[in-house]
């Protein structure tokens, strides 16, 4: 009997997960009382010294903490103690704003660059120089000019989302098959209608690929940006919990960041499938 590839892959995945969790559990397990000591002294020394237990939380601790967060995702006990749901909402909100701003700028600009060889050549040096700059390098400049840490984080997301979308849109528009453009020309289709009925659908798969790369980068950058600007967001949460020495919450945050990143990527992948056409 041969199960399908998907079922077998799932079985292997579960096995890897089980092995990992078991190893993790064993590695962080205490070794029992290490030495006899005075109870008062033992209280001062903590679990690491008395039972050999690692300060690294085990999978059960992390699981329990995840359960706590899932039960109360939106509590707000003041600036340094907010639910994971609220922190995530701040981060997603910043990414959404910066990213949409980048879409609004990159796609029309990419159309211009893609359609005009002159603009393509004229703007290329700027793009080539600005594209490899780490978005966080913009942060001081943003803080100085915008004078608002929240808006600066959004600006950093904007600037890091811009380049992949811009470059891909320009490439997609420039490489629309000339025969499709000739069809539009022989049908006397005006420039605006041509842009929307021929160039946009033809370039859409390339544009959406750029959007997918951008959303991935934006989600990578938001954590670092929020560590710098502080206040709210999942990046701030990670840094705050590190300062609280709550490794459990840091691990929970890593998982949550991963899951949200995957959802964003899959959403764009789905959009990509919608606009892809078989030839």
């Amino acid at each position: 009997m041969h199960a399908s590839l998907g079922a077998r892959a799932l079985a292997v995945s579960l096995l890897v997960l089980a092995l990992f969790l078991a190893a993790w559990h064993v590695a962080t397990q205490g070794t029992g009382p290490t030495q006899v000591m005075d109870p008062e002294y033992a209280k001062l020394m903590g679990a690491t010294a008395t039972t050999g237990k690692s300060a690294m939380p085990g999978p059960l601790d992390v699981g329990a903490t995840i359960w706590q967060h899932l039960k109360r995702p939106f509590y707000d006990n003041g600036p340094n103690d907010k639910g994971l749901g609220i922190q995530l909402a701040y981060s997603i909100g910043r990414v959404a704003l910066g990213y949409l701003l980048a879409v609004v700028v990159a796609i029309p600009l990419g159309f211009l660059i893609g359609m005009s060889p002159l603009m393509s050549r004229a703007l290329d040096p700027f793009i080539q120089i600005l594209k490899p700059v780490s978005p966080l390098a913009w942060m001081p400049l943003a803080l100085y000019t915008i004078k608002d840490s929240g808006l600066s984080a959004i600006f950093v997301i904007f600037i890091c989302s811009l380049w992949p979308m811009l470059v891909n849109t320009a490439f997609g528009v420039a490489s629309v098959r000339s025969e499709w453009l000739n069809v539009a020309r022989t049908l006397e289709v005006g420039p605006l209608r041509r842009a929307f009925t021929v160039i946009l659908p033809a370039a859409a798969p390339t544009i959406v690929t750029g959007m997918r790369i951008s959303v991935g980068i934006a989600w990578l950058v938001i954590v670092a940006a929020e560590m710098l600007v502080g206040g709210t967001g999942i990046g701030y949460f990670v840094w705050n919990e590190w300062n609280n020495l709550s490794i459990t919450n840091v691990i929970v945050a890593i998982l949550v960041i991963g899951v949200v990143g995957m959802i964003l990527d899959q959403a764009l992948a789905r959009l990509g499938r919608l606009v892809t056409f078989p030839e």
């Binding site: 098959r177 025969e179 499709w180 000739n182 069809v183 020309r185 022989t186 049908l187 006397e188 021929v198 659908p201 033809a202 606009v275 056409f277 078989p278 030839e279």
Partner: peptide, 19 residues
């Protein structure tokens, strides 16, 4: 003066819009 709807072109590579 330019392309026009009075002349229809049948292209060698059919040139259909695949979407």
């Amino acid at each position: 003066a330019g392309p026009g709807l009075d002349r229809a072109v049948i292209f060698q590579g059919h040139a259909l819009l695949p979407w």
